[in-house]
Simulated assay, not measured.
Amino acid sequence: MNHPPTGAAAMPRHTPSPRDAMTDVELIWIEKRLEHWIRFGRVAAERIMTRKTRVVSFRPDAVFAFARWVANDYGTVHSRIDILRAVRSGEAYTTVPFVRPGGELYLSIQGWAKVRAVLAAIDAVEAVGVDPCDAAPDHWRHVHNRLSIGERPRPYTAERHAAWLKRKAIES
């Protein structure tokens, strides 16, 4: 006669749901004080937590830009932008404030002048007709490295994008 399992064998195994595999980003808006926003990215889900807080979620491998700034009575005291790839379950990742669990970091820049330069680089990618989500990860790393040392990054061109697409096709 077969008896039902007891103890640890009786415990149901947790199988990750699609919700578990998502990367969550907490967005906050407090007028003239604090703002977190997504500059680009394909949001898969959104939850409104309060009038000032919501959480957006990204599927694994989604690329997104997360910008934030804090101000006081005298102006902006902190600004930062990160471009990340949402990781798959079990992958290594870099922790970033307000991003759970974290992501593969392509770019991380602080300081309003440099953040403005990143926003201009994103605009330039869009001007070429490329969704920034689809741009080569190496481009965002290049932008990070050049801006970090005070140099101007090379522009992202249609030719660079075509080369990236060919490389990606070969790698997959």
Rank of each mutant, 00 (worst) to 15 (best):
G75F: 11
V77L: 06
F40D: 09
Y156R: 10
V70H: 01
I83G: 02
V96W: 02
I38T: 09
A86C: 04
Y74R: 12
V87E: 00
D131G: 07
T53E: 06
P5K: 04
A71Q: 00
I30L: 14
G75I: 06
V99I: 08
M11P: 00
K166T: 07
T94H: 10
N145E: 15
W140P: 06
A67S: 08
I48K: 02
L147Q: 03
S172M: 15
A8F: 06
V77D: 00
V115D: 09
P97S: 10
I170M: 13
A9F: 12
D138A: 15
G7E: 07
H78G: 01
S79P: 00
P153T: 11
G90C: 12
H144K: 07
R13G: 09
E26R: 15
T95G: 01
R33V: 11
V130E: 11
A9M: 07
G129N: 10
M49L: 09
R100T: 08
I170F: 10
L165F: 04
M1V: 04
A124V: 11
G75E: 04
A127L: 09
R42K: 15
E151F: 13
S148I: 15
K32F: 15
G90D: 07
V43M: 09
W69A: 07
D131N: 13
E104C: 03
N2G: 05
H78V: 00
W140A: 06
I83F: 06
H3K: 05
L34Y: 02
E104Y: 05
H161V: 10
A71V: 03
C133R: 14
K52C: 02
R33E: 12
V55C: 04
A169M: 12
A124Q: 09
R100M: 08
Y156A: 07
R88Y: 04
F58I: 01
P153G: 09
I109D: 02
V99P: 03
K32M: 14
E159N: 09
L27I: 03
I122T: 02
I81V: 15
E91Q: 07
V43T: 13
K32D: 10
A9T: 04
H139P: 06
H142V: 15
R39I: 10
G150E: 14
G103R: 01
A113E: 13
H14E: 09
V56P: 01
